[in-house]
């Protein structure tokens, strides 16, 4: 079944592509099988991450960016992520609303995805879904994160270019120098820039970036700040050209290779740690190790010693 789906996907069949994404989302074993088979066909797509707080206009901006990419004849993939309820497991995925005019365009594939428990702004299966769209033949893949706050920075491990969308009036200059989200942007967008305080936000961001001038000079890319009004199509041309400028810089300075090497390392590390957790969880059900945990609960053994013993017994590794 999977072999057939992959063959159809490689021929450009959207239905097969959509089903493969469902499988990588729902079934870990099938995800492994699929990724092993499609990996040779991936690595061609350029990945643009769009992140920022809820309601800042990520989906609306994305709608306009899809249009720009399509005008250049690029095949476009979109993965738009919205939160899963931690209480019911349900989700309401509404990013698509803003992009529906593209849904009948044969050169666009839009997929909504729920976080299903992940907290970093993406879903666990996002990276595998990107691979499916990459193998399907997308030239550019936009990944829209959930609405984020200060620390959901997983997108930096996924995207080649990270666009952080903010809006005027969200906070003062201290917010701009806080750690986390503000550190990951290659491009800052101040959307809804027809509002008051847009220039103040621009000024604060520029000032924040000037503080790190030396770091940026050494690196060769100082994040750009762009004002947009997505609903009025203002600033979109500039944003699109800056995204391409960043892509060009990454590729010319060999930075893209470096970035992808970092990303591969992160990805492999995550998979290995998932393997370990799943193996150890399974083993913890056997009597000997079950008792070991009981001893920790009874204060007969400390948790670090127990963990060391478990690593040795399940994986043969001395920590």
């Amino acid at each position: 079944m999977i072999k057939d789906l992959i063959e159809r996907m490689l021929k450009g069949d959207k239905k097969a592509t959509a089903r493969l994404i469902t499988l990588v989302e729902n079934d870990e074993e099938k995800a492994r099988e699929i990724v092993k088979k499609i990996y040779p066909f991936t690595g061609k797509a350029y990945i643009v991450g769009i992140t920022g707080p809820p309601g800042s206009g990520k989906s609306t901006l994305l709608d306009k960016l899809i249009k720009k990419a399509r005008q250049e004849g690029k095949i476009v993939g979109v993965i738009a992520i919205d939160p899963t309820s931690p209480f019911t497991g349900g989700a309401l995925l509404g990013d698509r609303i803003r992009m529906q005019r593209h849904s009948t365009d044969p050169g666009v594939f839009i997929r909504s995805m729920a976080t299903r428990g992940s907290l970093g702004g993406l879903a666990k299966a996002t990276n595998d879904a990107i691979k499916v769209l990459d193998a399907y033949g997308c030239d550019v893949i936009f990944v829209e994160t959930v609405g984020v706050g200060q620390i959901e920075v997983d997108i930096v491990k996924t995207a080649d270019t990270v666009v952080l969308v903010t809006v005027p009036g969200l906070g003062d200059d201290i917010q701009a120098i806080k750690a986390g989200l503000m550190e990951i942007a290659d491009i800052f967008v101040i959307n809804k820039a027809d509002k008051e305080e847009a220039d103040k936000t621009l000024f604060e961001l520029e000032l924040m970036l000037d503080l790190e001038r030396e770091k940026f000079e050494k690196r060769g890319w100082r994040p750009k700040v762009i004002k947009t009004v997505a609903t009025l199509n203002k600033g979109i041309d500039e944003l699109w050209s800056v995204i391409k400028e960043h892509e060009k810089w990454l590729k010319s300075a060999d930075k893209l290779k470096e970035k992808r090497r970092f990303r591969a390392e992160e990805e492999v590390k995550t998979i290995v740690s998932d393997f370990i957790v799943s193996k150890v969880s399974k083993e913890l059900k056997n009597n000997e190790l079950y008792e070991l945990v009981g001893k920790v609960a009874n204060r007969e053994l400390d948790p670090y010693t127990a963990a060391e013993l478990i690593m040795e017994k399940t994986l043969g590794v001395k920590v």
Binding site: T88, G90, A91, I97, Q100, A114
Partner: peptide
């Protein structure tokens, strides 16, 4: 959504 399904709303 509250019943636990994944719902996609297109408007």
């Amino acid at each position: 959504r509250d019943a636990g399904f994944e719902v996609i709303y297109t408007g």
